[in-house]
Design a protein around this nucleic acid. Structure first.
Lengths: 280, 280
DNA sequence: AGAAATTTAGAATAAATATTCCAAAATCAC
DNA sequence: GTGATTTTGGAATATTTATTCTAAATTTCT
């Protein structure tokens, strides 16, 4: 009874291909559907049959026939294709990991493969979704700062320390507020400076406090955090959001670090103070 | 009867603004919704309440309450907002990355795209070429060590500090040899311990010296480095090689960090001392 | 022009989905 | 600790949306 719809296109590309091949031999109404979809593929993912049919100037039933003509079981089936294609898939690594463990193939190499895939996905997602305007704003602010203050503890600390290394390499004055010796370095914060504050949920109180103090002292803030509900996002300044994919209870840092690299190098370029040495 | 929902945000920007203002004071379940939506605005456009609720790990009714809390009449009302936005940034959205890469201009966003690509390639390359036997050897050595010493300076320092964070989170005794205060911590190195020594060309003398000292004292060495010609590779122990792809004069750290994550989690698993808390 | 085949439109039905409601649980204030 | 208030989860319901069906209209072929 239930046939398989193997005939249906499996990618949007294949879908277009099919239209190109046989679209011209379709009867009038179905042709209208084809033309409309070809011209407005973005609408398919977010509309109902009724809406699309209206826009293509055909009755809904004609649109249904169009979907079936192309090999789909119906409109929903076709829509699934368009919805999947252009939204990133965030696979659930937590369940994959338990599967992995159950299958007994819980080797370090297998784990590495999981982290690798999660890292790539996180990075790709970052590159696609980052807000270019905020990034520009951040770069502009940092490029004209006298001193750049770097704040990030615990999970965020590797990012902060990478930035410290990178700025040092480029000869840009930057201070890593590491909390060593429990010294308060508040007094270093001065108007004309800028701060990159980094924190991910659950947010470290020290980082947030220092960033707030900096804001009060008129220091420009670049907040590198994970969510708009983060306390860092409430500060006035440039906001950069990075969300990483979990692998089990562990979260990658790849995307945050990638952003940090792009940020520091952009600032270096803007300042025109490149020093192209290699690193140690 | 039909009230007006003028209170509801009219743009996605305004929606984020509202989350920033009052998102932090929401009860737990609604907060989960807020965070999920903030991180995945595209999903909202193309999913059902049931799907989103599942992804945000809340019951569907909680998601409904979330929508109403923000001033919408319900989910459909909120979805309309996101669907409009989704349509706008399409199809630029799908091809944005490749466009950025091809355009070759040096905006921060373009630079980010380059770092993103380099990072992904490095990670994929790592996963393909890593020597599983060495990895196993390293994990075995670290799993039975009493204390794990972490050494890495300059560019390698973020990796070392990430490992320190990760081990701490799992309750595994580890010491980060950061060189703070110029203290010599040689005397802490004892038989039965293990060391993860991290260095990339041009190799930092301090790191190499400390690793050699450790070897003399009978500490097991895991060398995380870039090339077989590295001084660290000459030491007796497990050798892990990571080669990163350059972007101009800059080199990513994504692969090294990915390896560090897999390594630390594997050691944690082997020790059976998982603590599945969250991190800060 | 007339018969056969194809295509169409809209009403009827089935399925999926959003929304509401309320008892139970958790949290808060005293 | 006790009572009041808020928050929660799930089942019940309402609404929307997809899908099918059939009679009428159109086209095709001889």
């Amino acid at each position: 009874m239930d046939q398989d719809y193997a005939a249906a296109p499996h990618t949007v590309e294949a879908f277009y291909e099919r239209l190109r091949e046989s679209g011209h031999s379709l009867p009038k109404r179905l042709r209208q559907c084809a033309d409309y979809v070809a011209a407005n593929p973005d609408k398919v993912a977010v509309s109902t049959v009724a809406e699309l049919a209206e826009a293509a100037d055909v009755p809904p039933s004609a649109f249904m026939r169009f979907c079936q003509e192309l090999g789909f079981s119906g409109f929903s089936h076709m829509q699934k294709l368009f919805r999947g294609e252009y939204t990133q898939k965030w696979p659930n690594y937590a369940t994959r990991l338990t599967k992995l463990r159950d299958s007994g193939n819980d080797t370090p190499a297998a784990l590495l493969a999981e982290f690798a895939e999660a890292g790539c996905n996180s990075i790709e997602n970052l590159a696609r979704t980052v807000d270019a305007a905020s990034l520009d704003e951040a770069v502009a602010m940092l490029a004209q700062a006298r001193t750049i203050h770097l704040v990030g503890n615990r999970r965020a600390f590797p990012v902060a320390s990478y930035l410290a290394y990178s700025f040092e390499k480029m000869g840009i004055p930057a201070i890593l507020h590491s909390g060593v010796g429990n010294l308060k370095l508040d007094h270093l914060l001065a108007r004309g400076d800028a701060m990159i504050a980094i924190s991910f949920a659950p947010y470290t109180a020290d980082t947030v406090d220092l960033a707030e103090e900096a804001e009060r002292r008129g220091v420009g803030i670049v907040a590198l955090t994970d969510l708009p509900t983060s306390p860092l996002a409430r500060l006035d300044g440039a906001r950069l959001f990075v969300s990483e994919i979990d692998v089990g209870a562990f979260r990658s840092l790849s995307a945050a670090l990638t952003l940090a690299m792009a940020l520091s190098v952009s600032v270096g370029a803007r300042r025109g103070e490149f020093k192209m040495e290699n690193e140690s």
